[in-house]
Nucleic acid binder design. Structure first.
Lengths: 333, 333
DNA sequence: CCGCTCGGTGTAATCGATTACCTGGGCACC
DNA sequence: GGTGCCCAGGTAATCGATTACACCGAGCGG
């Protein structure tokens, strides 16, 4: 590998001059061109590792998400990666697999690699490690999931409008016995979605009694399926179900289908999180779409603000209801 | 951030000793404990950037894939990441978005970051950059897609057995007019799958005439849908369709459904690449499953062999047919 | 004509680790 | 008791960049 010294020799100047030319500081026409020529001839590329050591900036960001295989997070990661890249940063994606322990482990690794900033979509209900990140001075932005007690801006979507619209939609379609499949209590995202939905329903005189709130200990298709089974076993089965994330919705869907129930005739089904393939199911699933790509972009921007020493605000973007056919109405075009 | 010097001072030894203790070389009981105590008290973590500069090893691998949002690649990336991590390596995932240019750009960046080794699931038909990687001496492993003319081991799945089984399956079900939706000619993976399938069909006296081979210029759901339309417009419409990747299969599915055709009654549909949600469609899709996680693991192992200076062989793992209901038979349990 | 300023460039310190080489003390062997 | 060896541990070079500081020559004002 050729280094800056080789270039300096070739161009007949000192390494300092080469460095200055490459960083656009005080070069003069003649020298500048000789240096650039030498760089081109040797195919020189600066050693990013050495640069990072000297400048204490790696131009690398970290993203820790709770599950890469969840399509919502995949798209989020993709959006974050694109934006980071556009702004000259590399991204290391860490996969916490919904385990706090693994999440902490990953954060540790990323800190060790001296990333310039970290985005975390926290698994579970936060962790001690996040406090440590803040203490270490590494810029931090929370993504999608807020963590109480951690002093960092949070970028996420809010379902108020969408859930209000959904309640109206269900009410208009005559659904009177809604149910919710939600992640375990204590998960801020789940709790919030549940509360907003309850409030929205109340506005239409519709109740959401505790027995129609199924808390899935395991936020996976299997968990969702299990909760759907419990709801269908109720003496008064629900006529509409909202699953607060896409994986649980899928499990619920399987249970409904395998029982031979028809959507939307027997039961309306709505998912929080719209993922591409919901549109390919039969009937296509009505869903609440988070502005995933905007979230990713906003997170990167907030993080860069912090990296450059400026304060960054939390960002709340509205989710929106995407009406397809799983509640009983033809799609609005 | 505390550094090795702080630790040395605290423990009353030289930095060399600290380094030796931490790397497990020639430590003696008493000193060793003093150093470890100092490390613990100060919460010292070695600066991996400095270490990488000195040792010329970053303990980071690069993975460039053609599309993170394609669930096949997502799972592959996840498998690679887990294995890399298990072996003490970090992974930087690069997303080429099916564009050769972006792929090259990413490879450049990864090389600049002095990754220890690179895995590439090449977009399109290879690129000049790959030759450069080999020339630079950076260990390289091709993943999923072979690239002619690049001297690097390739880890991928082979469909011979699965496609042979599929041909028998279709023949047994009386399907006589199979069709294929395939990526553009020149894509080695697509070409190979097509050839194998043709040969397998021939074994049952079934022909695959050119008009029933739909080459989609664009390997996306939209492309697949468009090709499906073309196949259905044939004077003699096919009675079975194999799509050579999951995205195109999904597009084909949409077209079939929107035309009101029934699967498998009117048409059998099979996808190459099994992704989780195929099982949730109605009817569940019969698919050819690649051993995705094994591929990821094998790629990391091959790469580490190369990194440690040993030669590594190419790996060919068999794909297998997963019979669901989209060809007309009840699932075998 | 002298000295000051200023822009361009070189010299060398620096980032934080690893590691080749050297030193000195203890022990064994002759 | 002296010589040699071994080994723990210190000193300093090194990786490849950036950058503070020194220096030098040209231009310009007094």
């Amino acid at each position: 590998m050729t280094n800056i010294k080789d270039v300096a020799e070739r161009a007949g100047v000192s390494v300092a001059t080469v460095s200055r030319v490459l960083n656009g500081r005080s070069p003069v026409a003649g020298t500048r061109e000789r240096v650039l020529a030498a760089v081109a001839e040797l195919g020189y590329r600066p050693n990013v590792v050495a640069r990072a050591l000297r400048t204490a900036r790696t131009r690398t960001l970290g993203l820790v998400i709770s599950d890469l295989r969840n399509p919502f997070f995949t798209e989020l990661a993709d959006a974050v990666e694109q934006e980071a890249r556009r702004l000259g940063y590399s991204l290391i994606i860490g996969n916490a697999g919904e385990s706090t322990e693994q999440q902490d482990d990953y954060i540790r690794t990323l800190l060790d690699r001296r990333i310039d900033g970290l985005m975390v979509s926290s698994a579970g209900t936060g962790s001690a490690m996040l406090g440590e990140v803040v203490a270490s001075g590494t810029p931090l932005v929370l993504l999608d999931r807020a963590v109480p007690g951690v002093a960092a801006p949070c970028v996420r979507a809010e379902g108020r409008e969408a859930l209000t619209e959904l309640a109206a939609h269900l009410a208009a379609l005559g659904r009177r016995r809604p149910a919710v499949i939600v992640a375990p209590a204590g998960t801020p995202t789940g709790d919030e979605r549940l509360d907003l939905f309850r409030t929205a329903l109340a506005g239409h005189g519709i109740e959401l009694p505790p027995e129609r709130i199924a808390e899935s200990a395991d936020p996976s298709p299997a968990g969702g399926r299990c909760m759907m089974r419990a709801l269908l076993a109720l003496p008064e089965a629900p006529d509409a179900v909202l699953a607060t994330d896409n994986l649980m919705a899928l499990g619920a869907w399987d249970e409904i289908r395998d029982r031979g129930l028809r959507v939307p005739a027997d039961l309306a089904l709505v998912a929080f999180d719209d993922v591409a393939w919901f549109a390919h199911l039969d009937p296509p699933l009505t869903a609440i779409a988070q502005p995933t790509r905007e979230l990713g972009r906003a997170a990167v921007h907030a993080l860069l603000e912090r990296i450059e020493g400026r304060p960054a605000d939390s960002v709340l973007l509205p989710a929106r209801l995407v009406r397809r056919r799983s509640c009983g109405e033809p799609p609005t075009r």
